[in-house]
Amino acid sequence: MITKQTWINGLRNGIDTIWELAKVVIPVTLVITVLKETGWLGLLADRLGPFMSLLGLPGEAALALVVGYFLNIYSAIAVILVLDLTVKQITVISVMIGICHNLFMESAVTSKMGVKPLPLALLRIVVSVLAGIGINWAF
């Protein structure tokens, strides 16, 4: 049954989520913006450019994928906010991160299900990269 408590729970969950996001997004956008404006991000981008062009992404976007894969979606969002990307590029990164993120934590959850986590983590990375290539091609 819908009661006043339903609305309160919903708002509270929403505020909790935004607070958790803010704790990650603000520091990460600060650090990435400093990296970008000092030109260090550009150096990294030059190295990774050739690989990232397979996904139709600029080299800097590698950072969004790395923090998404190993940390969480929130920090990948922070990187997306700082970079200048097209809708297509944001969609490619989002699909890749949507499929594969937070690998350490979620592998722990997977092993709790009585399922070997390492093959599943590898599966996620492979599907994520293939999906990125596919979206870049089809979008």
């Binding site: 609305w7 935004i18 603000i26 600060l30 913006t33």
Partner: peptide
């Protein structure tokens, strides 16, 4: 850089809040 970073972070959070708050209520 700090001003730009904070600006990008806060604008992003505002857009997210506009979606997340109603979504959480709808799920409940």
């Amino acid at each position: 850089a700090v001003i730009d970073g904070l600006g990008a972070g806060i604008m992003g959070l505002k857009n997210i809040a506009l979606i997340v708050l109603p979504l959480m209520v709808v799920i409940e």
